[in-house]
Structure formats: structure tokens, C-alpha cells
Amino acid sequence: MRQQQATKAGFLVLTVAAALTACGGSDGESYPTLSGERPLVIGHRGAAGYLPDHTLEGYKKAIDMGADFIEPDLVATKDGALIARHEPNITGTTDVSQRAEFAARKTKKVVDGVEEEGWFASDFTLAEIKTLRAIQPLADRDPQYNGKFQIPTLEEVLDLAKTEGAKAGRTVGVYPETKHPTYHVNLGLKLEDRLLAVLAKYGYTTKAAPVIVQSFEVSNLKYLRTKTQVRLVQLVDADDVKADGSMSLVAPYDKPYDFAVAGDARTFASLLTPAGLKEVKTYADGVGPWKPYLIPSKQVDANKDGKPDDLNGDGKVDERDRVMMAPTDVVKNAHAAGLFVHAYTFRSEAKRLASDFKGDPKAEYQLFYQLGVDGVFSDFADHAVAARNR
């Protein structure tokens, strides 16, 4: 059984490469995207595979590697400034825990129904945030740049995209995410109006603007649609992927948090049904699903002992021991509803790649490109671009 599954998935990867060659390959004449244009490469948190998340240096590196968009996650400071951090809790992405002058700011807050302890952006002014430095949040990635880069504002990210895009002779877009909108509203720091005000200063108010705004919540996107015509994207999350490839939906990652507050029974998965996608189309231009919603993977139990097989024999079971399954209909149904699909998150480390790809991240990109995704959020924009151009 294991051999049959691996052979089938391997054939699918080979078919992808052949199909990309047939439809133009590197010259990008035709792709199975909603528009027929080549898929976008989005620098996820900058160049997160190489430099600490959400720094101007990381965003510049992503642009240099060919990213079409750079992605700042937005949270608000005490004085209402929008800064690029992955979460309101800045403990894991800055050196704040090492700053004696801020030791007393350590506290507990409830974010999307979960109590967290640490230091939170909303307890700091922008001037104080600017004294902090970014650190690499993943222990298995290069820490040598810890403490070297500042925390940027949204305006600084927008300025960088314009400046570096001009140098490169192309338009570089910015793809901000409003992080935990309900949490910020409860603090009196509504992100959406602040975001709109900044975008208006740059003249970014139309669908043609080099901006796409994304969120895991729904009501804030509906609000934004009444205020702006910039492109909006509904993000779709889950808690985990089960052994059989199905999605695990456990709070707080089971549904948009505004659904939880409103007592709405629908889950993230509900948004990706044909009916859900049609509703999303009423307020957004695209969907941003976690990639297992598009092509799942599963563990193998060839001898039926109830334990997943260690396919590569390294003594542990992880992503490298999963096998890819057949694609779902999400991309097809989203395109039928008129929505583009930007999938997340693509990472190049071998331990984060399923067995089918044999440690080659480009093979994973090509599989998703051939499926018809309209864009990919990548920690390694250079690999995403290389796979697109292959």
C-alpha cells in the first residue's frame, strides 16, 4: 500500500513538471490561474527563511529575490501606530525580554480566547518599540541577525516597496494582514480605520493599487469592503492536519474569532465550500487557505499497527514521512466563484517537505502552481521564483 501511494504521488509530481513545460514554463505564457497570468510570489513576513521576520532588511531581501509582494502583519502600539509584527505578543519576535527597562511590562492578556503571558505591543509607544530589535522566532533558523534590525511601521514598509520597486524597474506590492481585529477593537485600537488612513495617504484606494489586505476574521473584511476597493483576501486556518489528511478544527483555530464571539457555528472549512466561497466573493477578491486544504498529505501505516511509518528511517516521524494525496476541489470552486487563491506557507527546510518532494522545495511549488494557485506565501521567495521560472 505504501509503495502504491508513493508511486501515485511521484507520478503526480512528474506530471506537474511536464504540464508546466507544455504551458510555457519560464516564459509564463499560460498558467491555470484565475487570470491565466503567472502566480504571484509573496514574501511571507519578508524573507523569513533567511532573516528575522518583519524587518526592512528582510523585506528588501525578498524583493531582491524576486517577490512580487511583501507581507507585513500589522498590530497596533499604545499610541495607535501600525507596526509589522506577527502577533500582539512581541515576546518571541523581539529582544524585549532582555530589556531590563521593560521588565515590569510583562503581563497576561487574552488573545482570541486564549490567555498569553509576555510583552504586548499595545503596552508600548512607537518610540519605545523603536528601541527594540527583532529576533528569529524559529529555533531551527539562523540566529546570527538577532538584535540587529528595528521594528518597522507600515509606512516604512510601503516606502521600501516603492523605493526598491523603482530600483528594480517593477511594481512591488504590499500585502498587509490585520492581526486579531477583535482583540484590537476591544483595546480601542481598531486596525482597519488606521490602515485605511495610511493607505489613503499613498493613494491606495482602488483595485489597481499595489495592495492586498488579508484577515482571518470576516466582519472586518466586510467593513473594509464598504470603505475601500483595494483587493481583500479571506484567510482560512485550521488547528492541524490529521493522520488521514483531513483537517483538524480545534479552537481557537477552528473558525474566525468574530464567528466565535457571535456564536456562529460555521468553521474555517465552511468558508471553502461552494456556498461559503460564493459568500466570500460578496466581500473579498480572493481566499488565502492553509495549503493542506488544497492538497492534503497523510501518514502511512503499512503494517496496520496503529503507528505511522518512518518512511525515511531517520528514527522520527515528521512531515518527511507524509505522502501527498489527490488535490481537493477548493481551487476549482474558488475560481468558479471568481476568487483567486493565495496559499500559505511554503518553507524549504527538508523537515517541512512531504516525502514526495525528496527534499526539493521547487517540486512542491510546481505541484501547487500546476493545480492553479494564483499566488504562494513563501519564506524563501528565491525558491518560489525559481520554481515558477523552471
Score class of each variant (00 low, 15 high):
Ala139Gln: 11
Leu199Asp: 01
Ser215Thr: 05
Leu232Val: 14
Val233Arg: 01
Val174Leu: 08
Leu195Tyr: 07
Ser215Ile: 02
Gly188Thr: 09
Val174Thr: 10
Gly245Pro: 04
Arg170Ala: 08
Gly245Phe: 04
Gln150Leu: 12
Lys201Trp: 05
Gly118Val: 00
Pro181Glu: 08
Leu224Arg: 01
Gly118Ser: 02
Leu191His: 05
Ala139Lys: 12
Leu187Pro: 02
Lys201Val: 06
Lys201Ala: 11
Val230Asp: 01
Gln229Cys: 07
Gly169His: 14
Asp142Ala: 09
Asn146Tyr: 10
Glu217Gly: 05
Leu196Phe: 06
Thr178Tyr: 05
Leu132Met: 13
Ile129Val: 13
Thr163Gly: 05
Leu235Phe: 12
Asn220Ala: 05
Val250Ala: 14
Val172Cys: 01
Thr206Ser: 15
Thr205Glu: 10
Gln144Gly: 14
Val172Asp: 00
Leu154Lys: 00
Val213Asp: 02
Asp159Pro: 02
Val213Gln: 03
Asp140Ile: 05
Phe124His: 01
Ala197Glu: 13
Glu217Leu: 06
Ile135Cys: 11
Ala134Gly: 10
Ala243Ile: 11
Leu160Arg: 07
Leu191Ile: 15
Phe120Gly: 05
Ala168Leu: 09
Glu117Ala: 15
Pro176Trp: 04
Ser248Leu: 14
Tyr223Asn: 11
Gly203Tyr: 09
Val236Ile: 15
Asn146Met: 10
Val218Lys: 00
Val157Trp: 00
Pro176Val: 12
Gln150Pro: 08
Thr178Met: 15
Arg141Leu: 14
Pro176Asp: 11
Thr226Phe: 12
Val213Trp: 02
Lys130Met: 07
Trp119Phe: 13
Asp237Glu: 14
Lys190Pro: 08
Val236His: 04
Val211Ala: 02
Gln136Ser: 05
Asp239Met: 07
Asn220Asp: 11
Val157His: 00
Val250Tyr: 12
Thr153Tyr: 00
Leu189Arg: 01
Gly165Asp: 03
Leu235Gly: 02
Pro181Asn: 09
Val218Ile: 10
Asp244Cys: 09
Leu126Met: 13
Glu117Ser: 14
Lys207Ser: 12
Lys222His: 11
Met247Lys: 06
Val250Pro: 07
Trp119Ser: 00
Leu232Asp: 12
Gln234Leu: 10
Arg194His: 14
Thr206Met: 09
Asp244Leu: 09
Lys222Gln: 15
Gln229Trp: 06
Gln136Arg: 12
Thr125Leu: 03
Leu199Ala: 07
Val213Lys: 02
Pro137Arg: 15
Leu158Pro: 00
Leu138Cys: 10
Tyr183Ser: 05
Gly169Ile: 14
Ala134Ile: 10
Ala127Pro: 04
Lys242Asn: 13
Leu221Trp: 03
Thr206Leu: 08
Leu189His: 01
Phe216Pro: 03
Lys190Asp: 13
Thr163Met: 10
Glu156Leu: 04
Gln214Lys: 12
Lys148Glu: 10
Thr228Cys: 07
Tyr145Ile: 00
Gly173Asn: 05
Gly169Trp: 13
Glu192Phe: 08
Ala238Val: 08
Asp239Asn: 08
Met247Asp: 02
Val157Ala: 01
Leu199Tyr: 04
Glu156Asp: 07
Asp237Leu: 13
Tyr145Pro: 00
Ser246Thr: 15
Lys179Pro: 04
Lys162Gln: 15
Leu221Phe: 09
Arg231Val: 04
Val236Cys: 15
Glu117Pro: 00
His180Glu: 13
Phe120Gln: 11
Leu195Glu: 07
Glu217Met: 06
Thr178Glu: 12
Leu189Gly: 00
Glu217Tyr: 05
Tyr204Thr: 05
